[in-house]
Structures are given as structure tokens and as C-alpha cells.
Amino acid sequence: MTKIKSLADLKKMKSDLQSKISLREKSENPEGKVVIRVGMGTSGIASGAKEIMEFLMEETEKRNVDAIVTQTGDMGYSYAEPTVEVKLPDQDPVVFGDVDKKKADNIIEKYIKNGELLDGIIPQNYETIDKK
């Protein structure tokens, strides 16, 4: 990694990274990639998020689903761990709660492949700050 030497460098790097991330999500094929985030805080891991993340990584590859599986911190829904957020290209992200292997399988087969929603979605009930 190279060092960031000035504020201008930092800002340039930010916009590069932002476009790289949006490119990663949209690139290659017109439909773009699916981004799957698994809530990997202590409470998520304690309820089995690690196994779910491994399962999602293996299965998306096996079933030829063009998806990025990544980890993130605690989403705050302790009552519904493990939690998984799926963002289909050009759609609002959807959070699934109480994800076990069966549900993870349904997420791939029903939601990602067919856009069919599943029971047990956690509705977003907070506001985010628009960055600047």
C-alpha cells in the first residue's frame, strides 16, 4: 500500500474508491453484481453468522450466482441474528433476519435468482445521515 500524503490525495482516493465500489457493483454484465453483507458482530457470530457466510460464499459460487459476499458490523437487530443484507443491482437493499442455512438457500434460490421476497424481512426503521 502506498502512503496517502495530502488531503488532495485522500479526496482523490475516496472518489476512486467510490467509483471502484459502484463499478464493482455494476460492472461487467448489465444486470450487475449482487452484494451480500453478513452481520458479523459478536452477537451475529454467536448465533451462527460465520457458518452462514461460508455457506453463502460456497453456494453462490457453486450455483454460478455473480455475487460479492462480504462481512459487516452489527446491524442492531439482536433479536433476529444472524442478519443478512442483500442488495440486488438498482434496488434498495433488503435485510433478512434469523437466517439459517435453509433460509440462506431460499435467499439464493428465491430472492437473488427470481426477485421473490421471503417472510421475515426486517423493515428499515431508521434514518441515515446523507454523507455531507
Partner: peptide
Amino acid sequence: QLRIALRNCGMIDPENIDEYLAAD
């Protein structure tokens, strides 16, 4: 609910500084 302190929790990969940089 307004997330300021938790703004990136559950949004970015905490082990990847690039995601934090992309989020300002």
C-alpha cells in the same frame, strides 16, 4: 431513529479501510 454514531455499523466491512475511506 437517526444513525450518527452507528452510521457505518452494518454498512461497511470493518476490516477494509477502503470501504471506510469511500464513506468519507
